[in-house]
């Protein structure tokens, strides 16, 4: 394979990985701006969604049903967590809240270990058939599923934010919580919605990548961290930036792993996060103006 098709090949992998990071970052930034909670447990939703779907599928349900049931259950888990852990502490400082989400994250990971053990579980690819040849690069059909899902989720959320009444209420909360409260929007309900939505998005992302990467109890931790990297690239207050940041990170990671060293793949993301926070904490891509 010549260099240009190799680069194209890596680009496809980067976009696949990047779309997963984008979705996680999107959920993180939305939750952060709505509730003020930097949810370090977001990655666990991804892992639990994937593991749960694999178990449901193994129990004999069709793949589509396993997907829907798992996404619904993790959304419910997100809502449950918001009511049981976040809501009682809603008046606490940001420091308290971030420590709570760390506790939540390690507890959920421990529970996943207890239920699923350390062995990776898998799901079949969503469509049968071998890799497709696209411009000299071989593309796994699952890649197209992932890109399609990311595009559908992002555009679905765009329509939700721009065109629906609830979506506008959420945006109002993002822009100014107190002002939203004054015009009769209940931030408690919106916060519940944010956590349920984060759960659903995380679970969907986890299920779509499982045929490619397999699922393990501890996959969520690094994915959550990558979501933060994407968010820091885009700026913690900018949903579009977070989505773009996810793709940038995915491509950067794949190229550095493919062309330099795979052992330091995770190190690249962490260095980007540190650099972003130290050099341009308002986001590498920060453009003043709209937040949503």
């Amino acid at each position: 394979m010549d260099l240009s098709s190799q680069l194209l090949q890596l680009l496809f992998s980067g976009l696949t990985l990047g779309s997963i990071y984008s979705l996680i970052a999107l959920a993180l930034v939305a939750t952060y701006n709505i509730t003020g909670v930097l949810n370090l447990a977001q990655g666990e939703f991804v892992a639990l969604g994937a593991l749960l779907a694999a178990s449901i599928y193994a129990a004999g349900l069709p793949l589509a049903a396993a997907f829907l049931v798992s996404v619904a259950l993790i959304a419910a888990l997100g809502a449950l967590i918001e009511r049981s852990v976040i809501y009682p502490a809603r008046e606490s400082s940001a420091l308290t809240l971030i420590i709570i989400t760390v506790g939540l994250s390690i507890s959920l990971r421990g529970l996943a270990l207890l239920v699923w053990g350390t062995e990776p579980v898998s799901l079949p690819a969503f469509s049968s058939g071998g890799p497709l040849l696209l411009g000299g690069a071989f593309v796994n059909p699952q890649t197209l599923w992932i890109l399609g899902m990311a595009a559908a989720t992002t555009s679905g959320l765009y329509i939700f934010f721009e065109l629906t009444y609830t979506g506008k209420a959420v945006r109002a909360c993002v822009i100014n919580r107190t002002a939203a409260l004054l015009i009769g929007i209940n931030p408690g309900t919106i916060s519940l919605l944010a956590f349920a939505g984060s759960g659903a998005i995380g679970a969907a992302a986890g299920i779509f990548i499982t045929p490619v990467t397999l699922a393990t109890y501890d996959m969520g931790f690094m994915l959550g961290v990558k979501g933060f990297v994407a968010a820091a690239i885009g700026g913690m207050h900018n949903i579009r930036g977070a989505v773009l940041g996810g793709f940038i990170l995915g491509i950067l990671e794949v190229y550095s792993a493919g062309l330099i060293s795979s052992g330091l793949k995770d190190a690249v993301a962490l260095i980007v996060l540190l650099a972003a926070l130290m050099l341009r904490p308002e986001g590498l891509l920060a453009i003043s103006g709209r937040k949503v």
């Binding site: 852990v85 009682p88 502490a89 606490s92 308290t96 420590i99 709570i100 760390v102 506790g103 939540l104 994250s105 390690i106 507890s107 959920l108 990971r109 421990g110 529970l111 270990l113 207890l114």
Partner: peptide
């Protein structure tokens, strides 16, 4: 020993709340 982390996480949440 890795299971102790479940308890640590739960205690951390509980104390903070």
């Amino acid at each position: 020993g890795e299971y102790q982390i479940i308890f640590f996480g739960a205690i951390l949440m509980l104390v903070m709340i």
